[in-house]
Write a protein that binds this DNA or RNA. Structure first.
Lengths: 148, 148
DNA sequence: GCCAGATAAGTTGTGCACAATTGAATTGTG
DNA sequence: CACAATTCAATTGTGCACAACTTATCTGGC
């Protein structure tokens, strides 16, 4: 196996390992709020647009998750009293996901979570931005190829 | 609320999304060989040291996975005829994982997989090296903090 | 207005990840 | 030597991810 192949394998493993390591950092922090990381991501999307209640599909487009993942996840968030689901009046196929008062209030409580996470990475702002941009480029490249 | 809470600017989401996107690239390629990505990672470790059969713990140390993940995964690899598990003679608590002839032979067949993956990322060698180093640094920083 | 095709969300089944627990084997200490 | 503490793999239970399928609803062409 050439060095190039080893390198390429290492990049993929590095990505896989880093993603799991970061989730490990989130776990104890989010556990205080009774949240998992994917649940936290869903709430981030909802907090960004507090006025319109997106449908399951729209949430899925943002997070690149399908209903097979989101349906049970949203059911758990609803069970926790953070979210409400209601059939759209205009289109009964759609389910709109909105925040409850409790879900809205949670936003302030998790305010310092991103800073804690950034600190745990040990990277400065410039490195974080560079890393985010590279990763976003990789993700976009992959998704663009997939659509063709 | 601060920009930090904006999903797009989150390095963590970029990492999570990139990791899943890359697994999406692996899936159809590895499916031809009847492998999942974590199973492929286990085989990579075994191919790197074809002489000694590592224990479940040693595999776990390399991949940062515990027996709760590895035990059923190894059972499936054994069911596929790629791997054998045997209790250590010296220490009956340990289970050594070795390659079968079929498992050894698979190595040549998946030879060009890493190149296909690297192409899918759309990054050149320099970018791949930089990305790998940054990710490794993040992972190491997190794991070092965890041990303290 | 009717209906074939589409779209949306949910369900089922498989395979990770990981926490917590179990049970067997080994090690360290008195 | 005895035995408590440790180590190792496996198991159990929860929660993603994702493919494949189901059911309900909607849309466009006629």
């Amino acid at each position: 196996m050439t060095d190039d192949l080893v390198l390429r394998r290492q990049v993929c493993f590095a990505l896989y390992a880093a993603s799991r390591a970061l989730t490990d950092v989130y776990r104890p922090i989010l556990e205080e709020f009774g949240l998992t990381y994917p649940q936290y991501l869903v709430l981030l999307v909802l907090w960004e647009r507090p006025d319109d209640a997106p449908t399951v599909s729209e949430l899925g487009a943002d997070l690149r998750l399908d209903s097979g993942t989101l349906s049970p996840l949203l059911k758990r968030l609803e069970g926790a009293g953070l979210v409400v689901r209601r059939r759209s009046a205009r289109d009964e196929r759609r389910v709109e996901v909105g925040l409850t008062e409790q879900g809205r209030a949670l936003r302030q409580q998790v305010d310092e979570v991103p800073m804690q996470i950034a600190r745990a990475t040990g990277l400065g702002t410039a490195d974080l931005i560079a890393l985010r941009d590279t990763l976003t480029r990789v993700t976009d490249t992959i998704h663009r190829q997939k659509e063709q």
